[in-house]
Write a protein that binds this DNA or RNA. Structure first.
Lengths: 259, 259
DNA sequence: CGCATGCTTGAATTTAATCAACCCTAGTGG
DNA sequence: CCACTAGGGTTGATTAAATTCAAGCATGCG
């Protein structure tokens, strides 16, 4: 049931070397213009809610591009709890920075579609194409930066700040996808959010209620919120915009950062 | 004293290619055998305790290899607190996965020595040398894996587990460096540890005391501990060795992971 | 010696977790 | 069409853990 990782896929790689004839999206004649181009000719695979794309510990044989939907990326720790380390959505690539085995699992939240490439092909393509390498590098840097941000969130923000930070990020995403009117799509459940933010489901729920009561947002069903006062949200997120150009001085002022 | 990470190491690279002409930048005609080789000919720079190597937000113009000592890698958040996202020690490379600007600061804990390479040179060398690319990629993967581990630690471990995990990691490091007899070197201060583990200095102190009283470790001065019962430490670290091959079953048993 | 810094310990407080009950909604089947 | 159910979600009361505030100790350095 939940183990049905992936069935029946054709694994031919896009014949990287020479002229890639037919050419679907996003790349041209000689070489792929972008990473997306590498996946463009691969068949889409469909995942239903809760279905695994890959599981922590499996050999990391493939790299995936999400075409549609959202996946959660997580690890199960020894006491059985789940830690979600990220969500990936359409356009994102998953499973890149793996050395031997996947270090986390990925599974669909609701319906999702992905394309896959064998890792060897992916690596070879990128390795062969000088234009792609910086693009991949950039992605990895972004992934790293996101991990850093998450560490900061987890190690120093309270429940409210965590949730506001999260909602703000989702708001940006939704806006980028053309969702209008400060609406935020939350495809994931409250439990997903809790496991991502290092909180319990109750705390997430309470905090959303509190923000609603404070007139900062407004609840349109479980998976859709409207942000009424984005500025307030940003302020409560705690990465204060106006001040954080002066990290050193502030820190000194508070006596926490010396020398 | 506690800084003597490892001194007097011979850093000439295994003379991979042929004649490495005068030239700074450390690579090729032949080609460098390893990333370390890229830095080998660079002058060492010395940093004293508390001195910055680079600061968050600066243009990320250089890549560094630590030759000696330990640095802390951190961000200062808007309210002035410091979040340490990692420590780097001899042999580690810092500042790789940066796109435009550094996303964190790095500064020496006590005396340290580093070698630097302009980012352009570093990138060019790696880009030109097919043998180096997977080595760099591997490093980045390790960095990513460490970040994941840290996220798990921060989002789901209690103070004791955090500290035990940390000590265990330091123990491995110390052992790798040839420190004998289950001794752990802690070049950093308690405040550094606290900022790294997402705790306060008081909690770190109390927890060390507790472990000492429990006969698990033994305090030899501020910057040196002896681990009396490594197995107990490992168990308290909470990434239980014996069970975590069955993440799925456990999770289901606890009703936390469904579908 | 005396100060400063880092560390430890104690008491009070606060935050989020836990335990427990209940609600709401979508989907099912009679 | 309505009743029922299961899952996800909310709310409340209590508890536990770590923070905060406060004081004192130890070590190293001028």
């Amino acid at each position: 049931m939940f183990l049905t990782g992936n069935q029946a896929v054709d694994y031919d790689l896009p014949a990287m070397g020479g002229a890639r004839g037919g050419a679907v999206a996003a790349n041209h004649n000689g070489q792929a213009a972008c990473l997306h181009g590498l996946f463009a000719r691969q068949a889409q695979e469909q995942l239903t809610g809760g279905q695994s794309l890959f599981i922590e510990g499996e050999p990391a044989d493939h790299v995936f591009e999400v075409a549609e939907g959202t996946l959660r990326v997580f690890r199960i720790i020894s006491d059985g709890r789940r830690v979600i380390t990220g969500f990936v959505a359409a356009g994102d690539i998953v499973g890149v920075s793996m050395h031997g085995s996947y270090i986390y699992s990925a599974e669909a939240i609701g319906l999702a579609r992905v394309r896959r490439l064998p890792r060897r092909s992916f690596d070879a393509s990128v390795n062969d194409c000088a234009a792609l390498r910086p693009l991949l590098f950039k992605r990895v840097c972004e992934e790293m930066a996101a991990a850093q941000d998450q560490m900061v969130l987890l190690s120093s923000k309270n429940a409210e700040e965590r949730l506001c930070t999260f909602l703000l990020k989702q708001l940006r995403r939704s806006a980028d996808r053309g969702v209008p009117g400060a609406m935020v799509q939350l495809p994931m459940t409250r439990l997903d959010i809790a496991d991502y933010l290092g909180l319990t489901i109750e705390t997430v729920s309470r905090t959303i209620t509190k923000l609603t009561n404070a007139g900062i947002l407004c609840n349109n069903g479980r998976h859709m919120l409207q942000i009424i006062r984005p500025a307030a949200l940003a302020q409560m997120a705690g990465d204060s915009d106006e001040m954080d150009h002066f990290p050193r001085e502030q820190a000194l002022a508070r006596g926490r950062y010396r020398q």
